[in-house]
Amino acid sequence: MAKVIIALGNDISTDDIYPGRFMATVLPSETPQFAFSDRTEFNARLKAKEFPAGSVIVGGENFGCGSSREQACSTLKGYEVTVVAKSISRIFLQNSINLGLRVVLCPAIEASEGDELEIVGEQVVNTTTGKTFPQVKMPASRQGIMDAGGLIPYTRTLLKARG
């Protein structure tokens, strides 16, 4: 069971998730402090560690659009949140898989802040409203990287095989 800590609309950009003015900060150990920093209250709650790992950020269509900045993924990975969105922009989705940020594609998801979700098998169940929504399976092409635990270990294996 995981609680929805914020429910966002469509076209949430990486400028929103991680504003450009913090881009000089690159270390995954340092980026989390700036997550959604222009949403002051939410940022403060994240930093106060109010939310346990596995808590859910719900997004609408085209979550993570805009800049390719990877900080937008590492900043969320730092809190071990799960993103459940109707659709996710290409670069953000790939960055998430590469860094091991958990993302769930769920085109029909309906959930509000405070709802409890259960992400099971190929479904997302909103236990607060009692509704069930199907997940879209990640493309098989990406499964290999996910299974390896991210792109760094995946690439390392390919390198070693090549010698």
Partner: peptide
Amino acid sequence: FGIGATEMAS
């Protein structure tokens, strides 16, 4: 096309 920093490292 655009990629992230980890993909570039790869």
